[in-house]
Design a protein around this nucleic acid. Structure first.
Lengths: 131, 131
DNA sequence: CTTGAACCTCAAGTTACTTTAGGAAGCACA
DNA sequence: TGTGCTTCCTAAAGTAACTTGAGGTTCAAG
């Protein structure tokens, strides 16, 4: 059994975030010690880790709720596979968008760096962006 | 001079979003027609386009405020380049996190698909995820 | 000149948290 | 046993970046 602080540390999130997840029912109500402090076990950490992995990738909480209930309900494989595949599609399109933006930024950086004067005067980087 | 609807359409955002940007001072107070409707010109569109590009990249509004004042103040290139490079770092780490999650999902999908029974009964896909 | 789309303001709702206020619990060490 | 100090507790309010809703006005087409 570990404390909420230890749990948060291991799952790389903050203590209030853990309490918040409990308050919205994404984590089950935690067990309590004598004095009232929350206590967690390995399964809690596993579940929080799963949630955090997903949140780091901006999967909305409602979708994570689906995932968790899928994992608990022992649903047939088909549903689970479909869910995972859908998430992979979302992830893929997000990666594509980010790569695209990165390319744009790198092009603007290049043009800035090549047209910049050594004295550090402003170049035309914003002219293009605002055109 | 174009209407707020036309402006929003061209900058790929919604009308309320434009009004919101004005309300927080990210866009200057719009000119008005006789009846009170907002009217915009090319410069407004340029500025909104810049803002939207950045927001698509999840650059927070406070940072865009910095950028706008950077572009208006004709600051030296160094600052601008540093800003863009920082944004590229943010994008890169976000892509890495997404790729990582995608890999995890694909591994679980594989193990699910290979251990699944043809009748669609649940397999152990979540056992690993929650371990 | 009327009708429907687009516009207006102001207020409240949304998501996923964080921050604040005001205490109580737990643990070291003197 | 007392005295700190960190960690914990709850409840409420704040934050970012918008979206949605209510209730009313303006504008362009027919």
């Amino acid at each position: 059994m570990i404390s909420i602080g230890e749990l948060a540390r291991r799952a790389q999130c903050t203590v209030p975030t853990v309490r918040y997840y409990e308050s919205i029912g994404l984590l089950p109500k935690a067990q309590r010690r004598e004095g009232g402090n929350r206590a967690y076990d390995r399964a809690d950490l596993a579940r929080l880790n799963l949630i955090r992995r997903c949140r780091d990738c901006d999967i909305p909480i409602e979708r994570i709720r689906d995932l968790v209930s899928l994992s608990e309900g022992q649903r047939p494989c088909g549903e689970t596979i479909a869910f995972f595949e859908e998430q992979r599609r979302v992830i893929k399109s997000r990666i594509d968008a980010l790569r695209d933006l990165d390319l744009t930024l790198s092009l603007h950086l290049q043009s800035c760096e090549s047209s910049c004067l050594p004295n550090g005067e402003p170049c035309g980087i914003f002219d293009e962006l605002q055109a």
